[in-house]
């Protein structure tokens, strides 16, 4: 081959690589939003589900999709898309996620068990942003319908905050007569590691559960409960992962014991993603007075652009100051 022929083939390879890079660039980040919105509007449920997941990944830059996601998440009737569309919203727009929560909360009392089940699933999909829904979910933790109870338990696990109240509901579900519900409850302890002395005692009993699946998982939950993940590991995860949601929720669940995380959480109050700012404020709230060093950062965050973050910041300041007052 001549040098020219070799050069031509290498040049064409370079063109191909540039083209592939351009295609990838076109389909990621904010540039992908119009295409994903189009997919959300299609009649292909699978395309809609994947589009919602894609928009969730893009986050704040997918603002243009919020009205459509809101519409899909709150649409009447049965839809596979309710939970997926709702699940996409917290990373894009916290206020829209709260609107979905408010839309579904009354449906927890619906006479139709399918509607109650869907309501619990949607609230769970919203994650920690649906914190104000926890009390309503606790009200249906003894629902006569097994599937509804199962969804309620999973929703409580997904919302996770406030951890003491969620823990109460999950501990109650560990005694459920139906093994699927007990399994769902044990799962929350097994994979998240956090447990109270009371729940740990019940989990130990459940290691003798007549259902082997529950018994095995309970053993795993007891093991992880006796070896909780340390705060430093969560801090390390915060530094290494791009998605900070999980470690922030875990720190919020630990409460005052996570005091060494206060400086990091204070810095996250200025993060770009509203969900991270919200979770940082929630974590500081659960810590109470030991998080007093975060007060200046929280004061600054009272002017946060997002009303849900502002609300969480105010609650955090209140938790720090109230308990501080009591201690004095």
């Amino acid at each position: 081959m001549t040098g020219r022929q070799i050069g031509l083939n290498l040049g064409l390879l370079a063109v191909l690589m540039v083209l592939l890079g351009f295609i990838y660039w076109q389909h990621t980040g904010a540039r992908a939003v119009p295409g994903l919105i189009e997919a959300l509007q299609s009649n292909d449920v699978q395309a809609q589900l994947l589009a919602a997941q894609g928009l969730k990944d893009i986050g704040v830059q997918a603002q243009a999709a919020v009205p459509l996601l809101l519409e899909l998440a709150t649409a009447d009737g049965r839809s596979l898309l309710h939970s997926e569309a709702a699940g996409a919203l917290p990373s894009i727009d916290l206020s829209a996620a709260r609107k979905v929560m408010l839309g579904w909360l009354p449906k927890l009392q619906d006479p139709d068990p399918q509607v109650r089940r869907d309501a619990a699933a949607v609230l769970g999909a919203l994650g920690p942003v649906a914190k104000p829904a926890v009390h309503s979910l606790l009200g249906v933790v003894n629902d006569p319908n097994t599937v509804v109870r199962d969804r309620v338990v999973r929703a409580l696990g997904a919302i996770a905050l406030p951890s003491d109240i969620v823990m109460r509901g999950l501990t109650q579900a560990l005694r459920d007569p139906e093994w699927t519900v007990r399994y769902a409850a044990v799962t929350q302890f097994s994979y998240n590691g956090a447990s109270s002395p009371e729940s740990l005692a019940i989990l130990r009993e459940l290691t003798q559960d007549p259902n082997q699946t529950v018994a095995r998982l309970a053993q795993s939950a007891v093991d992880s409960g006796s070896r909780p993940i340390s705060v430093s590991v969560h801090l390390l995860t915060l530094d290494q992962l791009t998605d900070h949601t999980y470690p922030l929720v875990q720190l919020a669940r630990i409460g005052p014991g996570a005091v060494e995380a206060v400086p990091k959480l204070s810095s996250i109050l200025a993060a770009d993603k509203p969900l991270e700012r919200y979770l940082a404020a929630c974590a500081l709230e659960t810590m109470g007075p030991v998080a007093k060093d975060a007060a200046p950062a929280l004061q600054r965050s009272l002017e946060d652009a997002d009303p849900v973050v502002r609300e969480a910041v105010a609650e955090a300041l209140e938790a720090i100051e109230n308990i501080k007052g009591r201690a004095l």
Binding site: L10, L13, M17, L20, I23, Y24, H27, T28, A32, Q46, A47, L50, Q53, G54, K56, D57
Partner: peptide, 26 residues
């Protein structure tokens, strides 16, 4: 549908897979 879908990323998998092939081709 799955070329750029989170959790699937078949496009990226193909690119990653192509790396040794491209080196071998050159």
């Amino acid at each position: 549908l799955h070329l750029f879908a989170p959790g699937y990323n078949l496009f990226l998998i193909a690119i990653f897979n192509a790396v040794p092939f491209i080196l071998f081709a050159v």
